[in-house]
Amino acid sequence: MKNRILVVEDDTAIAEAIGLNLMLSDFDYKIIDDGAEAASYLEKDHSFDLALLDVMLPNLDGFALMKHMEKYNIPVLYLTAKGDLTSRIKGLRLGAEDYIVKPFEMLELLVRIEKILARTGKLSSILRYKTITVDVPKRLVSKDGEIVSLQPLEFDLLVILIKFKNCTLSRDRLLNEVWGFDFAGGTRTVDIHIAHLRKKLGQELNIVSVTKLGYRLED
């Protein structure tokens, strides 16, 4: 079951870029470019796990949209060019889960979306990639129904790669996410663990090395 995300953003170029990325990260999404329209759309369809709201919207601004979102228990993440402290505080006070100031990076947005979904318990706990199934709470990995045993760090690495599949992740980012900020070892550690994963899961796991950037798990 994919998570559904509502994007209310009046700039088409930004909205489409976000939509494309959401789609590549296995999310369902709906783009609306008008505040009032978003409010009325919610009345007939409100099964969203998260809403990304721009603050400056035609007809009804993002702050005003907040109470419509509350009515249907949809967590809100603001995307806005208004970076001043007052606006940020206002947004968070109103009950937003998070606040991202433009310009931002896509990967950051994806991480924040995932964190919010995890916090609100809406993140699907079972990840699937081709014939590989990962049960995150139980820390079980199975391929074609057969359980594959992985080291704890290999497991974490696999989870990150699947969560951000189709998305290039640098060795540094992987180190930070899996080993933590204070890990003293070099980036070679990542390469070694990637090699272990490839060996244990075989050709199914299509991990591509991207020159100079890092690794990407492709469908």
Binding site: A13, I14, A17, I18, A81, K102, P103, M106
Partner: peptide, 9 residues
């Protein structure tokens, strides 16, 4: 910010 965000994304 809007066009720059769009370019970046």
């Amino acid at each position: 910010k809007t066009p720059v965000t769009s370019l970046l994304l």
